[in-house]
Design a protein around this nucleic acid. Structure first.
Length: 599
DNA sequence: GGGCCGAGCCAC
DNA sequence: AAACGTGGCTCGGCCC
């Protein structure tokens, strides 16, 4: 396809059911059709489905959804064949499911494909960008916003030629992009990864649509408690300041000024100076260095303040008025390792142990199942390195951190203290991040020299682990790429040798090279598990829904009477997904049934 | 007043 | 005194 075809668009507008019926046989015969939708909003629950665009390699149609019976297309859109080529299929899946009761099946998502192909090199995956890259055409995307304008013609169900051209243009470019991306995926051995991601689209979409229920009252109560603690701390600090200050704090009118604004660095610096403490600024590092009791309290005050602003009312504002639930955006390929990202709100960063999580609840008559992989990253490390000690520890299901401590400090298991286990655990986890002696020393409170010795002992105990880490770091730099056990690829761009930061940048690539196969394989496994669980639920038509995932954790809402059955499915499928990639290490799941989200 | 960015902090 | 991987959110500062 060349630029001219976009300006001289070859498409037909379909405005009645009879015309739609005429094109069905043509579509049924295709092996792949490109599709796109235009909605009046981005929220699938309140959006109106305006246009549905379809294209074969030769023709395109723009369907006015308000004027036709879309159910005529249901079997085509839901079946495995033809393949549906879509840019950001999750959006279209959700809109079609909610507004037309059609569940898009068998997709090739050009946006995800582009992310897979260019992972580590680029994050430019918009249709505009990839159409230019693969077709050399410049797309004008400003018409898009006219569909969501509540006062525009689209809101009245009328479309301008410009809007129809735009809609057709979006779907006309897809076949050629698909053809080229598919070729690249084959050449780069990325078909498995693409299949995984494409199969995951309806799973993630259903998870988003189902959403999470939050107990608003409980949430507010919790915020109030934090606010009270913050205010109490504030009062204490004010009192301390008054008490310790040799000067009385009196305002212009001779009244005792009772408070200063703790959020104002200027006022704080003045207050500290009155106490004879001269601080350069009120940054966290400065306050930590100063051993003053008020500095300590101030840091504590800020921690509460942070919690309140970051997780306070802002999350409740995201509750969807139509469903009364939170529908966060799960970004399937958020991280270059293959992990999910999440936003609006980010449910993957809800504090683990401060009373926020227990506000996420099951509907009445339902239960939440929280399941997470036990030490999955260390198990992956055992698999990829083939380290005998690691493998045996998991085989015998002994506590790896305790075992590590006993081997490193050459003491019997029974003599391992809490401190020694903590030191071992810090190294075990630090491994996966390419952690150095300085950072280790800092965490467990020893000198850098002692930390260095500790690491030496560690690596002489686990020789294969060291070998694997050194090798993969080196290979990442040499070849410019690493892969996960699922075949997912991440690329690296080596810095210029003349770059003053050269060595630092190379070290960063080495660390990323070490971490990505571990973190990314964990992501592969969780994604396989989500698909397997989703399929099983559908197969048996169970009243069970995925609601949430946090890297190595899956949360499911199940009707009470079948929660045991659901829990068995979740556990079995998570293990099946794990063992698909881990062949010599057993996989273990921690699983809990509760009224709320908790481990 | 909106966009961008770093700091700081939350998660795994 | 820090050099630990992957993200997102909020705030403050800066720029236009």
């Amino acid at each position: 396809m060349i630029a001219e075809t976009l300006t001289d668009l070859n498409y037909k507008v379909i405005e009645n059911t009879e015309k739609l019926r005429e094109i069905i046989p043509e579509l049924e015969n295709e092996s792949a059709i490109a599709i796109d939708t235009e909605g009046s909003r981005f929220d699938p629950f309140s959006a109106k489905l305006l246009l549905l665009q379809l294209a074969t390699t030769k023709k395109a149609w723009v369907i006015d959804c308000a004027k036709v019976d879309l159910s005529l297309l249901k079997h085509i859109l839901e079946s495995t064949r033809p393949l549906k080529i879509v840019q950001n299929a999750k959006f279209d899946y959700e809109l079609l499911k909610v507004q037309a009761e059609i569940q898009l099946g068998s997709v090739f998502d050009t946006m995800l494909a582009e992310r897979i192909i260019t992972c580590g090199i680029s994050r430019e995956i918009s249709l505009k960008t990839i159409a230019e890259k693969y077709l050399g055409v410049k797309m004008e995307k400003s018409t898009r916003e006219t569909f969501t304008d509540p006062h525009g013609t689209a809101a009245r169900g009328e479309f301008t030629k410009e809007q129809l051209d735009y809609a057709a243009g979006d779907v006309l470019v897809l076949h050629e992009i698909f053809r080229k991306q598919f070729k690249t995926l084959q050449e780069e051995n990325l078909i498995e990864t693409a299949k995984l991601e494409f199969s995951l689209v309806p799973v993630v979409a259903d998870m988003e649509l189902h959403g999470s229920l939050i107990d608003e009252d409980r949430w507010r109560t919790h915020i109030n408690e934090l606010q009270e603690k913050r205010d109490k701390l504030n009062a204490e600090i004010q009192k301390d300041l008054r008490h310790l200050s040799p000067f009385s704090q009196v305002d212009l009118f001779g009244n005792e000024a009772d408070t200063i604004n703790l959020d104002s660095p200027i006022q704080l610096l003045v207050a500290f100076r009155k106490l004879g403490v001269d601080l350069p600024n009120t940054s966290e590092a400065t306050l930590q260095k100063s051993n003053h009791s008020i500095a300590k309290k101030l840091l504590e005050y800020r921690a509460y303040e942070k919690m309140i602003t970051a997780f306070g009312e802002s999350i409740l504002e995201k509750i969807n008025p139509k469903t009364g639930r939170l529908h966060p955006d799960f970004i399937q390929l958020g991280a270059d390792t293959g992990r999910f990202a999440c936003n609006n709100p980010n449910l993957q960063q809800i504090p683990a142990d401060s009373g926020f999580r227990s506000c996420f609840i099951a509907r009445s008559g339902y239960k939440l199942i929280t399941a997470d992989y036990s030490q999955i990253e260390l198990r992956i490390m055992a698999e990829v390195s083939g380290d005998t000690e690691f493998l045996q520890a998991f085989e015998k299901d002994v506590d790896l951190h305790t075992l590590t401590a006993s081997q490193m400090f050459k003491i019997p298991i029974s003599k391992v203290t809490k401190e020694k286990r903590f030191a071992a655990k810090s190294i075990n986890f630090g491994l996966m991040y390419g952690r150095g002696p300085a950072s280790l020393a800092n965490q467990i409170g020893i000198s850098v020299e002692e930390a260095r010795k500790l690491l030496d002992v560690y690596f002489s105990t686990y020789k294969r682990v060291k070998q694997w880490l050194d090798n993969i770091g080196r290979e990442a730099v040499r070849t410019g790429e690493v892969r996960t056990l699922g075949g997912r690829k991440r690329m690296f761009t080596n810095p210029d040798k003349t770059d003053p930061e050269y060595q630092r940048l190379i070290s960063a690539i080495e660390r990323q090279g070490k971490n990505t196969p571990i973190q990314g394989t964990s992501a592969d496994i969780t994604k396989y598990a989500l698909i397997l669980i989703h399929n099983e639920i559908k197969k048996h038509k169970l009243d069970v829904h995925l609601v949430h995932t946090v890297h190595d954790e899956i949360v499911v809402e199940a009707r009470k009477d079948i929660v045991k059955k659901a829990s068995k499915i979740v556990e079995d499928k998570m293990i099946e997904a794990g063992q698909k990639l881990l062949r010599r290490v057993p996989v273990k799941i921690d699983i809990h049934i509760s009224d709320c989200w908790e481990k």
